[in-house]
């Protein structure tokens, strides 16, 4: 086996490349996103569901909303407090959170997700640009 040194060099290069992102970002933790609420959202105090739930699971909730609106013709959401909401991303969510850039995008950019909601849903129904 005369190939040992080739194999070892290869392995070293492989690991160097694979672990590169860790070396590169060492000690440079990016600060968490600083999310801004609109006055309207602040005044409402709570979203359709508790904040902790919304923070972690809003996408699943939206998925259920869209499924029920599009496929079952059910458009009213009743939350745990018995409050009713029109299930609409553009007309309900973005009515309060009319600051998409400071609210949605900041977090999405931070976590490096690119939801394609905005390819169809108008992002600023109330906000005059």
């Amino acid at each position: 086996m005369n190939d040992r040194k080739y194999i070892l060099t290869g392995l070293v290069i492989f690991f160097a490349i694979v672990t590169f992102p860790f070396w590169y970002n060492l000690g440079k933790a990016a600060p968490g996103p600083d999310i801004k609420l609109t006055e309207k959202a602040k005044a409402a105090k709570t979203c359709v569901m508790p904040t902790s739930y919304m923070r972690a699971e809003h996408m699943q909730l939206l998925d259920l909303w869209r499924h029920n609106v599009v496929r079952n013709a059910e458009r009213v959401f009743v939350n745990t407090e018995g409050k009713e909401f029109n299930m609409s991303l553009s007309n309900t969510c973005l009515d309060c959170h009319s600051n998409k850039a400071d609210f949605c995008d900041k977090c999405h950019n931070y976590s490096s997700v690119r939801p394609y909601c905005w390819d169809c849903h108008i992002e600023n129904p109330k906000e005059a640009k």
């Binding site: 569901m49 259920l64 029920n68 079952n72 013709a73 059910e74 458009r75 009213v76 959401f77 009743v78 939350n79 745990t80 018995g82 029109n86 299930m87």
Partner: peptide, 8 residues
């Protein structure tokens, strides 16, 4: 109570 959906 669990959340639910209904028609308008």
């Amino acid at each position: 109570p669990e959340p639910s959906v209904k028609k308008g």
